[in-house]
Design a protein around this nucleic acid. Structure first.
Length: 787
DNA sequence: CGCCCCTGTTTTTTT
DNA sequence: AACAGGGGCG
């Protein structure tokens, strides 16, 4: 496959033609084409193969972003395209921002104001606003966030008299999301799937949901793409216009595209057929939210004659790290196949350390960081990457105890916070009196005595008269259908909204926001709140009002908030970064800690249960992403005991550890200071079987016994010095026997710690056992005896 | 209408 | 274990 693609690439239009012309044209400009300097031959080919479809398979650390930005610079500098002829799509705002900045740096002001560089959703919005009426919307449509969607779904479910407990709105949301990801409008959903939800009502619910959106003049994120497809299919002239307009199309992170995005791109690319997709099938980690690795695997089929360029020269990691990552990812089937290589030194081996429990693991990580810090390793160049957010807690606790400065990347986002969503709801309801969802959110926030009963009345009236809630309120307060108290409260609220709406016309919008928050009693609500986070919320509200000043008007600000759900965070501070593996994609650090490599956690059991082998391969890609974040040092670890949902479970090392090439790995034993006193476990819970028979493990056990209790030696881990971690080269702690287990599902077994149980599943020498007392656990078969 | 207790849930995350 | 959301009660 690899050979084939390369052949196809060279069989295409000879790149030299464009290359010479490009260079000649660039040479006309003073200073030649400095932006091409320093590209390697493959990168250069990816940049200079301008015409026709191109797939750039860019492995981790091979200069993907550089290629993308240089390619745009090249298109503009050589006069092939003006900035507005180029469509460049990314997935995240961050990526879009970065690309803008780098293009600016490459070619100066000429590259500024690329109007069609943005996320799929931002560009989709831009297009839909221009043609809103063709898809049944007004151009000032609202973009709903997930919480609004959820509330809408709840209403729809209730309307259809379906038990929301049996068929939760979340599940419906998931189903509809899935359909939208696959580009399916309600009528296109396969009947079988539509019928699977709520006794055959899934399709009807989807239809009803879309109808509700339409009456609200609102769309959700999926619609931003789906409605473009509808627009183009029903209006070929409009499609043609865009096909013509976008002379060159570039797509970043192509492996993350879902079907809807793929269809979207394909329609547009059919014009000039100059589409360059950059991606890495080995870094596809978003399958669970609809990304189709197949899109990248099928590229050459979908775009016949496509040139394929592989970027395999890695400029990031040292040899052993790259070897470990490559060796691991090689276990995946269904990949296009790349071999990363580096000209860098072999460097340090990847280390693997076993800890007694997750608490000790956190301590090991923290102490390891402290000793690096002592050697002047900048903290900003250290990251701890975890599989799930829940792992962060223990690590944070440890950092706090030691006073290690750290920052969590990708936590709850600014615009997702309750106080911000409330403030936004006030602004939305002010800007758009028909925004029922916003009005509903704040009608009783702060508490003003307008509860469910009142809301029901409003709903009934609004539905009967087909008017928005706020208008329904205005009309009802003129009748005597409401209790006097409710009536006066509601009148005051309605009048406030009128007043605020008038203010928007004359007063700067951030001042109006300030006024709204004060007059509505919202600020006061938090001032009176005695809970610990109230002060922080007030701070957030201040920041929120302040951030509005950066936008020309209220509508502009609301659009920004709907599409750009992240607030820029201060970078470069002297802190350790803590984040999930997913959040780490695209980042790099000198030293990377990868804790929690245990079967069940990583690879994650749920991924395995839900997606089987595909799930396992995605987990493996995640591991690959994790390893390739490291420039100089990657430190894996696992714990033998971990608390899962509050219960202690015994765990076994990740199968991925076994899959690493032994030659690039060092097993490093934990410094000998197991916190025996703090553990609630017997030191020797089970006779160690073959898997724990390695010298390192045995020594760890011996040291534990000898070192006694307490924390006394916690700083004795001076690396390189005496008493520091000893290394046993090439030995793997979790070495599998490879031999199939002697046990079969259904067999009765006995475990010294967990007692009797029944084997539920077998995977090599790893057993899933339902213990009579202890519940379901995963254990190595050498830990149990026939029972 | 509002508060409190109980119950069920718990991957990864963007737009 | 921790949290969120719903139901029931005052």
């Amino acid at each position: 496959m690899q050979k084939q693609s390369d052949a196809a690439a060279t069989a295409g239009p000879p790149p030299e033609t464009t290359s010479i012309a490009a260079r000649a044209m660039a040479a006309l400009r003073p200073g030649g084409a400095p932006y091409l300097d320093g590209l390697n031959p493959e990168q250069r080919r990816a940049v200079e193969t301008t015409d026709g479809p191109v797939l750039v398979l860019a492995g981790a650390g091979t200069g993907k972003t550089r290629v993308l930005t240089t390619r745009i610079a090249h298109l503009i500098a050589t006069g092939r395209a003006r900035p507005y002829d180029i469509l460049a799509v990314t997935f995240t705002n961050k990526a879009a921002r970065e690309m803008k900045a780098r293009i600016g740096a490459l070619i100066g002001p000429a590259g500024e104001g690329m109007p069609w560089l943005g996320t799929f959703h931002a560009i989709g919005t831009k297009i839909l606003r221009r043609h809103a009426e063709l898809v049944g919307l007004k151009s000032d449509f609202t973009i709903l966030g997930t919480d609004d969607q959820l509330r809408l779904m709840k209403q729809v479910i209730a309307d259809q008299n379906i038990d929301e407990k049996r068929w939760p709105a979340r599940a419906l949301g998931h189903a509809i999301d899935g359909w939208k990801n696959r580009g399916l409008s309600p009528e296109q959903v396969p009947p079988g799937e539509a019928g699977a939800f709520a006794f055959g009502k899934g399709g009807a619910l989807y239809t009803a949901y879309q109808a509700r959106l339409a009456t609200l003049n609102a769309v959700d994120f999926g619609d931003l793409l789906l409605l473009c497809l509808k627009l183009w299919r029903e209006n070929p002239d409009v499609l043609e216009n865009y096909q013509h307009r976008f002379r060159y199309i570039l797509v970043d992170e192509y492996q993350d595209t879902n079907v809807a995005q793929y269809l979207w791109l394909r329609l547009l690319a059919q014009g000039h057929r100059n589409v360059a997709c950059v991606g890495d099938d080995d870094q596809s980690i978003y399958g669970w939210r609809g990304a189709e690795v197949d899109n990248i695997l099928r590229f050459e089929h979908d775009f016949p004659g496509a040139a394929v360029v592989r970027l395999e020269r890695n400029y990031r990691s040292t040899g052993h790290i790259l070897a470990a990552a490559s060796g691991l990812i090689a276990k995946n089937e269904g990949r296009l196949g790349k071999t990363l290589r580096t000209e860098d030194v072999a460097g340090e081996r990847v280390t693997v350390t076993g800890a007694w429990d997750s608490e000790e693991e956190a301590r090991l990580v923290a102490e390891s960081i402290e000793s690096l810090q002592a050697k002047k390793h900048p903290l900003s160049e250290i990251a701890v990457l975890v599989r799930i957010s829940a792992q962060m807690r223990e690590i944070e606790d440890r950092f706090v105890q030691l006073g290690l400065p750290y920052r969590v990347i990708g936590g709850p986002r600014f615009y997702e916070r309750a106080e911000i969503r409330d403030a936004l709801a006030y602004l939305r309801a002010t800007a758009n009196p028909a925004d029922d969802l916003a009005f509903e959110r704040i009608i009783n926030t702060p508490k003003r005595g307008l509860g469910d009963a009142t809301l029901q009345q409003l709903h009934t009236y609004a539905r009967a008269e087909r008017v928005p809630l706020l208008l329904a309120a205005r009309r009802l307060i003129e009748t005597d259908e409401l209790k006097p108290r409710v009536r006066s409260t509601l009148r005051a609220l309605a009048e406030s909204f009128s007043r605020w709406a008038r203010a928007v016309e004359t007063v700067p919008h951030s001042e109006v926001a300030q006024t709204i928050l004060e007059e509505s009693g919202y600020t006061e609500m938090w001032q009176k709140d005695r809970s610990a986070d109230a002060a922080g919320r007030l701070e957030n509200l201040k920041e929120f009002v302040r951030s509005m000043e950066e936008f020309p008007d209220l509508a502009g600000f609301l659009e920004h908030v709907a599409l750009v759900m992240d607030a820029s965070e201060a970078e470069g501070a002297e802190r350790v970064s803590l984040m999930t593996l997913h959040a780490a994609k695209g980042l790099e650090f000198d030293t990377v800690f990868l804790p929690g490599w245990e079967d069940g956690l990583f690879p994650n059991q749920r991924a395995l249960d839900e997606s089987g082998r595909a799930g396992l391969e995605e987990e493996r890609r995640l591991a690959h992403v994790g390893l390739t974040r490291a420039r100089k040092r990657a430190k894996l670890s696992f714990a033998v005991n971990r608390r899962i949902h509050g219960l202690w479970s015994s765990t076994i090392p990740s199968r991925f550890i076994d899959e690493l090439p032994a030659g690039s790995v060092d097993v490093v034993e934990a410094p000998a200071h197991f916190s025996a006193g703090a553990s609630r476990f017997d030191r020797n819970p089970a006779p160690f079987g073959s898997s724990y028979g390695t010298p390192g493990w045995q020594r760890a056990q011996a040291n534990t016994a000898a070192s006694g209790r307490g924390f006394g030696q916690s700083h004795g881990a001076s690396p390189g010095g005496r008493g520091g971690p000893r290394q046993i080269e090439g030995e793997l702690v979790a070495k599998s026997t490879g031999a199939p287990s002697a046990y079969a599902a259904g067999a009765r077994v006995f475990h010294t710690k967990f007692g009797p149980g029944t084997v539920a599943g077998v995977d090599g020498n790893k057993l899933t056992v339902d213990f009579d007392k202890a519940g379901r656990k995963m254990v190595l078969d050498s830990f149990v005896q026939p029972g």
